[in-house]
């Protein structure tokens, strides 16, 4: 019985994946129509999954508040914010309160996280040089430093005082970095294809057994 269900899920997932994949290569009306239907189902299921995900968030944080686990005050704030946003969000995306929440809470918080990212990266750069004293890390840090030098605006003198820093930056970015990035992208693309095929062949079953 267990094996039967296991096989059924694998066959359904494999067949659905195969139809979507073939729809990109074969210009058959039936296959393209089936691909579109399956894609629409996927979007619908994904929307329901979002609802389940929100319930999951509420449940996890409710348990934390109920059991007074460490960090429960944060969970309380999260639950209140979620409920308030959902209630006022139901009135429409142009609702004044929702616009205010977006402009004065959501946007500033995300911007401050971006600012935090800049600081974190600067610290990580110093840590990289201090802790990983191998040649790839030195090349990485040195390249990043040269690109920074070529990007910033010098207040009192031209960036061509010693060497053409912006030209050096362009060469680093457009020649060396682009070449390296293409090699990395090639590896990522091959890895993504193989990962997808493993799901299609039911070797990897993220949908469970």
């Amino acid at each position: 019985m267990k094996l039967g269900a296991h096989l059924l899920w694998a066959v359904v997932a494999g067949a659905a994946g195969l139809f979507v994949l073939l729809g990109y290569f074969i210009e058959s009306e039936i296959i393209i129509a089936m691909r579109l239907v399956l894609m629409r189902w996927a979007v619908l299921i994904s929307a329901w999954a979002l609802l389940l995900g929100l319930v999951n968030i509420l449940y996890v944080h409710f348990i934390k508040v109920r059991d007074m686990e460490p960090g429960w005050p944060y969970s309380t704030v999260l639950m209140l914010a979620l409920i308030v946003t959902v209630v006022f969000g139901a009135l429409g995306p142009d609702n004044d309160i929702i616009v205010m929440v977006f402009n004065y809470i959501h946007l500033p918080v995300e911007t401050s996280l971006m600012a935090l990212l800049a600081i974190s990266l600067a610290v990580a750069g110093f840590r990289l040089v201090a802790q990983k004293r191998d040649w790839p890390s030195m090349v990485f840090a040195g390249t990043a430093f040269l690109v920074l030098l070529g990007t910033v605006q010098w207040p009192f003198f031209s960036d061509e005082l010693f060497i053409d820093l912006s030209g050096l930056r362009d060469w680093l970015v457009q020649v060396l970095a682009s070449g390296g990035a293409r090699g990395i992208l090639l590896g990522v693309a091959l890895g993504a294809i193989v990962t997808g095929l493993r799901v299609l062949l039911a070797v990897d079953r993220p949908y469970g057994d």
Binding site: I45, S46, A49, L50, L52, L54, N56, R205, P206, G208
Partner: peptide
């Protein structure tokens, strides 16, 4: 992503 979280639950359960 919520759907990805569901897949994670299914993977863990199986």
């Amino acid at each position: 992503d919520a759907a990805m979280a569901l897949l994670a639950q299914d993977t863990l359960r199986s």
